[in-house]
Structures are given as C-alpha cells and as structure tokens.
Nucleic acid binder design. Structure first.
Lengths: 215, 215
DNA sequence: TAGATTGTTAATCGATTAACAATC
DNA sequence: TAGATTGTTAATCGATTAACAATC
C-alpha cells in the first residue's frame, strides 16, 4: 500500500466526507465495518488505510471526532483555505454559488474574467465583484491564495496557469479539458467532466452488449 | 491488463478526446509515442490499450480516423445520445449551457425541477422549458432517454434515482455527493466535486510538508 | 532494403484482500 | 473474562512497463 497514491487519497477524502455526515447524526464511534458500508470500500481496506493514523482502538473501533481531526490535518481542512476563481462563465458561477465547499474550509475570495460585462457583478458569497484578469497579478501579489479554480476555455488555460504560477499559487483546480504544464511544487487537480460522461457512456454501451440489447 | 477496469476506460476516453483534438489540426496519423505525449500516459500503455482495436500498422502508427471510429463505437458516441437533467440549480444550469457535450453526441432534451419558479424557463440548447418533477414518469414513458444527469440536493438523490430506474433509464450521471443504490443493469457515474477539491488540498498539504513550508 | 513502429509477453510494480494474533 | 475489533502481514490479484520479435 502506498500512502501517496491517487487511489489512497481519494479514499481518505471519502472517509472524511462520510465521517462528517455520520457525525451530523450524533454518531460517536464507528468500526471499519460500519465506515465501509455505503462508500464502496472494503472493511479491510479501511483498516489498512486508517491504521497509520493511530486512532483505532481494538475491540472498540474509531472515535469519530479523533478520526475527523486527524483527517482534517492530512487534508489541510483544519484551517481556512482562500480560493479564487478565474473564468466566470456558467460553470464558474455554479462554483461560486455552490455552498458545499465552505463547510470544508474552502472559500472563494475573488473572481476574475476577461469579459467586461461580467466585471463588477457579484455571485454567491463573493465579497467583491468580478475583476478583470489584468488585475490578477496585483491581486496575487497582495493576497494569500491557496487554491485557484480555473473555468476558462481550453485555449486560455496555459496562459492563465502561467500567471497564477508566477504569482505564487501552489494549488490549481482545473475544469478546462486540457492538461496545462506546471513546475514542480505546484499541485494541479484536473476535473474532466467530458471524460466522466464518456466513461459512463462506455459502460452503458458495454452493458447493452452484454445483455444483447440493440438499444 | 483488464479491458473493463475503470482506469482503462478512463484512458480510452482520454485517447478519444486527444485524437479529436489532433484531427482538428489536420493530423492524419499518430504513433503511440505521439499520442502519449500531453496526456500523461506512457507509449507502452497506449500500445497495450489500443492493440485489441486492430487499427495499428507496424512501422506506421495509427490512422486517426480509423482509431476515432473504433473508439466512437466503444464509447457509444457513434449515435445520438438523449440526456435529461434533474435539478436545475446553478450546477444544472451550467450543464445545460455548457456546449462541450453536444460535439460528443450528447444533448439535453428536457430538464426537471421541483422549484415552480424555474418551471417554464429555458436554458442553453433546451428546446422545451423546465418541467415539474411530477412530469418525469410520463416523460420517461414517452421518450427515449439514454442518460439522466442528476444535480439535485443530496437528500433527494435516492428518490429521484428510483423514479428514473422505474422509468427505464439505464445511465445515471450523478453530481450529488451521495452513492445512491441502483439495480443491476443500471450504470451510474458519480462526479464528486468536493472529493476532488479535498484531494487537491491533501496533495498541497503534503507538498508543503515536504518542502518544510509553514504556509 | 532500411527504418519505423506495432503487438505481445514476461517481468515488475503496486494495490487489495484475507486471516488472525494482539489488544482493548 | 468474553466479545469485539484493530493493525499487520503474507498471499493474491491486477496494472504497468520494458524489451524485442514481427511486420509494414
């Protein structure tokens, strides 16, 4: 087991979300068995993953609060995370108005777009109106930004990434269907929604074939 | 190599998108080496993945058109795919107005929401205004729907899924942070955007620790 | 023919599971 | 103490890579 692999990190995030959910219902402890149900992970996998956190107690399970605390440290959710958004199209607006990030400590502080029509508008929890991309370098020089979300069109991705990197941004959350180049030390997470749809379509096709259906 | 695994399907989708991109620039053939660059996949992996498609030619590479044609069959993109949307919040609206799906044969035909204020409105390419969820069973009985996108709140996911399944929908593209139960034969793809953000945050945290930075 | 590049497979690498001793 | 459940590790399973003979 590699405590660095993509699959492992994905599971950590999943445990965390599940635990927060369970805590809402007043649950105080879980066994690996209980935690494993509903999240498509085996109990054995849960134990292997969580063992290094040192929170488990034989014969008892895991104290939810302790487990959450450890995971929050690992996931960097134990502190405030400032985000900015570049690209305020419909997808960008959806990100700004979605309130499912702030409960995990992530908040959009500012948003940037090239379209002058959008500049000056506000969305969601945004305290300041949308700014011009020209203001981005100055903003980065004067504010601490941990993550920049990117919802610009594919052609502009690399140039925006370059501005962000030059401005010292270390975390990039990219929604455009491209894989921009980033230097070492900059972490990029690509969310490729079209690929997700194609995956679904493949499995659908495959299951149609298995069942000899023509439609 | 398992020609059914999640990682393999993900790569197929990625090859396909890349090939369509290259074709736009008039490229007629690629080698595994060329196809592999820019998409974070090794040439060796490309050859293993594509070998069963029977399109490659020794000493020459792959004819882009042939490869695309084969992948389109596998991915079910060689025909029109009717989609509907349930849940027309900001995220739903972003999906409706995003025009990156239709070029891969996916089109939203109708959208449903419980909110009466939204009913009657139109978004993006939608031909008919947003309908009440009450109309969903009748719609499903009278139209062929291959994929239903779900952007409702987490509490409603399972009940909407039940309606969809009862109506014969075989493909569900779920954007709500839950894992609804579906019977065999129904394919579900979960897009968990919060987990994606948490993954990014974890790697950022990790890289901070590696570099002994406090911020 | 010479050069290029595939498809194949054995070797390697990595991830998951099963089983159970240790422990609360 | 008896029962429950962890953490550990060997075994298994699956995915990736490297190397090269086959082929165009």
């Amino acid at each position: 087991m590699d405590f660095n692999s993509d699959v492992y990190i994905k599971r950590l995030a999943r445990y965390y979300r599940r635990l927060v959910h369970l805590r809402q219902y007043g649950v105080l402890r879980v066994s690996s068995e209980e935690l494993a149900t509903h999240i498509k992970i085996s109990p054995s996998q849960v134990r292997t993953d969580l063992s290094k956190l040192g929170v488990g107690q034989s014969g008892y399970g895991y104290r939810i609060n302790n487990l959450i605390a450890e995971l929050e440290k690992l996931l960097g959710v134990d502190k405030r995370n400032n985000m900015i958004l570049v690209g305020v199209g419909k997808l960008g607006q959806a990100l700004l108005t979605y309130n499912g990030f702030s409960k995990y400590s992530f908040n959009f502080m500012a948003a940037f777009d090239i379209n002058p029509q959008l500049q000056g508008e506000t969305f969601g929890m945004l305290l300041e109106p949308v700014k011009s991309i020209k203001e981005l370098p100055y903003y980065l020089a004067t504010h601490k930004v941990s993550i920049a979300a990117l919802a610009v069109d594919p052609e502009s991705v690399q140039s925006v990434v370059d501005i962000l990197v030059a401005g010292g941004v270390k975390g990039i959350w990219n929604f455009a269907p491209r894989f921009p180049e980033v230097p070492d030390g900059v972490v990029i997470e690509n969310v490729h929604i079209q690929e997700s749809l194609l995956k679904l379509s493949f499995r659908l096709e495959e299951s149609r074939v298995e069942n000899n259906l023509t439609n």
